[in-house]
Write a protein that binds this DNA or RNA. Sequence first.
DNA 1: CGCCACATTGAAGGCAGTCAAAGGTGGTGG
DNA 2: CCACCACCTTTGACTGCCTTCAATGTGGCG
Lengths: 234, 234
Amino acid sequence: MQDFVEKPQFVRNCYLFTGLNEQELQGVDRITSLRTFQKHDSVFQEGEKADGFFLLCQGRVKIYKLSIEGKEQLLHIVYPGETFAEAAMFEGSSYPASAQAMEDARLLFFSKNGFLTLLKRHPVIMLRMLGNISKYLHHFIRLVEDLSLKEVSSRVAEYLLDVIDREGVLMEGGIELELEMTKSDLAARLGTISETLSRTLKGLRDRAIIEVDGKRIRILDKNALEKIAVGRKF
Amino acid sequence: MQDFVEKPQFVRNCYLFTGLNEQELQGVDRITSLRTFQKHDSVFQEGEKADGFFLLCQGRVKIYKLSIEGKEQLLHIVYPGETFAEAAMFEGSSYPASAQAMEDARLLFFSKNGFLTLLKRHPVIMLRMLGNISKYLHHFIRLVEDLSLKEVSSRVAEYLLDVIDREGVLMEGGIELELEMTKSDLAARLGTISETLSRTLKGLRDRAIIEVDGKRIRILDKNALEKIAVGRKF
DNA sequence: CGCCACATTGAAGGCAGTCAAAGGTGGTGG
DNA sequence: CCACCACCTTTGACTGCCTTCAATGTGGCG
């Protein structure tokens, strides 16, 4: 069983548990259970009872909402090392959104009860979790701002600038980046649909602000992008 | 000075500090400072350094974002007894939104440093704060859902149903309620503008679902409202 | 090669925002 | 008590961004 090799590794590397000694880490390890998911598997559905939270070890997981007609609003994409659904665990009895594996994924599940006793022993973990939830909150405030106060072109520009900061590579002729998801998913993340995203990218291309080749995007005029991101009509 | 009479009262009644003894409460009291604001006064502006959080004692405070053109998106309305800006304090160095007194207001300010030492002594406070921030998170997820996945009529219906639950009064001929804010503010809360809200309410009136008299609204057909709230075209 | 998911493009229509003006309301001071 | 003023609300006409619907293009994979 790979579990017994890997599981403690993930716990050890998690930001929540840095500074704990070996014995304590083993204590943490005992309250977790490893869960594996295949691409497109559901991790949990909106409305399901939330009796714990997750640490993503491998793969990517998307958190999203569906409208009654089936339109998807992507709330967040979780990357390895990050925890999610902590707030749902603390706040209410059920998950307020759904989670699905975007690729084959491994997760550690922390049951609520086990974790609460852990917290009593190690209050510092709470403080880290507070910080993390606060980040989520900030993220959602920005999402609200985007959806309510900006048009699609601004959101696209803002997103591109964000990717540039995280993983943009300076090449001759511009900054290159690769989209982390399909354009359909990106559209959902930006609160629109793929057709509109496609047209918006085309608009940016026509103005020689970007070049698009599949998932690869080359930024030709970052300055223009920044103007669009803050809301200037484009 | 009224301060010395009232300040400890507010601390005593705050959900964060229930269960603390008299001496501990005085300790809490010492790290707070009372701030008073007049209607329309700014409590803080987006981007200002966040070096603490607030407990609202009296009045109402709105948390909002402004677009570059000046359109307002109301994020939340704070009522007495509630705390706000905790997440901003934990997460980053500056407030991600602005806060303004909707009426003359009294607030207790908790400085970050003082509060952190308090937390070390009373970890249970952290747990309560975690619960509260989690509520905020859930609130914003719903806001994102509304803005992205629902049209204005659904948001209005959802809002009315929410007010019904909290303070609706069953009268002959329907449930009566009173809007907690001006229709302009409500429009901002719902991610739209007063003109559109006005038209939407008119639409509901025309269909004999509600009756409107200023801030007083009588619900004639709650059932219809529920259908609209979940997204049925209306 | 054919399938399937994803992506692009065009045409048409709708929801909601903008602009403008009139009507209503509450508070203040004479 | 009334007049006035500021602010909020309503209504109409118009505009436009975005979605919807539909068709075609593209790339990966069995």
